[in-house]
Computed example of a mutant assay.
Amino acid sequence: MARSERLRLSEIRDISRLIGECRELGPNPIAWRRHYLEGLTKIIGAQVAVGGTWRMTSSDGPPELHDNLELGFASEEQHAIWRTFMNDGMVSANSFRQFASRPGRLITCTRKEVATDREWYRSPEYQNYMRLAGVDASLASFYRPQPWNIASAVTIHRPIGEAQFGHRERKLLEFAQSEIGRLIGVSLAGPDEPSEFQLPPRVQQTLHCLLEGDGERQVASRLGISPETVHQYVKVIYRHYSVSSRAELLAHWLRFHRGMHGDQ
């Protein structure tokens, strides 16, 4: 491997710092994923980043998009074209199918590793979507944590006319994905994980009071609302987290607390 293709210590430190910052945002799946994508574009050198979760419906069938976050497009029009590609054209694209069908827990590759320039620039994927969305160079990574049928995916892109991604950038993304992937569902909330940020503000306040040890009457006094209203909020919280008692709620909360702060 050429010296210029090796990961620099500063880059490894930058990725490690980014992962640590994501852990601080762990209970909020949208916040940590957005921060992760923004950090990757700066560290690796890209404009567009897309990250989300795919469900592998069968061993030989195409994956289905579960959730997605996109950032960095030059215009709303280009972003809309990308969204059309995600909804209508991605799973049938030859390069995507070749990439997603590769075996292994962690798959990372550049566009050039799945399609030649001749194939790529003549493909409907490029002509009908990528070209119109203003992007060309692509670098993608799939991480398949347990359960096996869920894949956490990231793709980053550079605008048309900029340099293609090389071996060093691929190794950087692979390192980042290996670090972030093992934390999803542990200290980083997954896409199906209930989050406090999905609750209305008053219910969030009630949740925080409960976690601090307050009973329902104490919560009512602190928030200046009736005990009956607090009781209804508690029911909403229990349904949201699929628990039936304060002890179960606390156990669920501590799982992320331990994941974020280690065994301290």
Rank of each mutant, 00 (worst) to 15 (best):
W32G: 02
L69G: 09
P103W: 06
V91C: 04
A220V: 02
A93C: 07
T155C: 10
R6I: 12
P103Y: 04
L132G: 01
A115F: 07
D67K: 09
Q98I: 12
A115C: 12
H257M: 06
C109E: 07
G104S: 05
M260D: 07
A80D: 10
H252Q: 09
Y241P: 08
Q47Y: 10
S75P: 03
A137L: 10
C109M: 09
I237L: 03
A133M: 08
R6L: 15
L254D: 08
Q164H: 12
R144V: 08
L188F: 06
S58C: 13
L40V: 06
R131N: 12
V114G: 09
A46S: 04
S152N: 13
I156P: 11
R118P: 03
N94T: 13
L207I: 06
I225F: 02
Q177E: 08
A153D: 03
E64M: 14
A189Q: 06
S10Q: 13
L65Q: 12
W120E: 04
F197Y: 15
R202K: 14
R246E: 15
N68G: 06
G213R: 02
H157Y: 07
T206W: 00
P62T: 08
G262P: 14
N87A: 13
Q164M: 10
F165H: 12
Q78V: 01
H261Q: 07
R144E: 10
P147V: 05
Q146V: 14
R122C: 01
V48E: 02
Q264G: 13
S226T: 15
I30P: 03
G52A: 04
K112Q: 14
A49P: 08
E193N: 11
I184M: 09
E70L: 14
Y238G: 00
Y36W: 14
Q78A: 04
L65N: 08
I184A: 01
Q164S: 12
I225K: 00
E216Y: 15
L25Q: 10
G213N: 07
Q47T: 10
E179S: 13
E5V: 14
M86Q: 13
A247S: 08
A49T: 07
C209Y: 09
Q198N: 06
D117Y: 11
A247L: 10
L223D: 12
S244V: 05
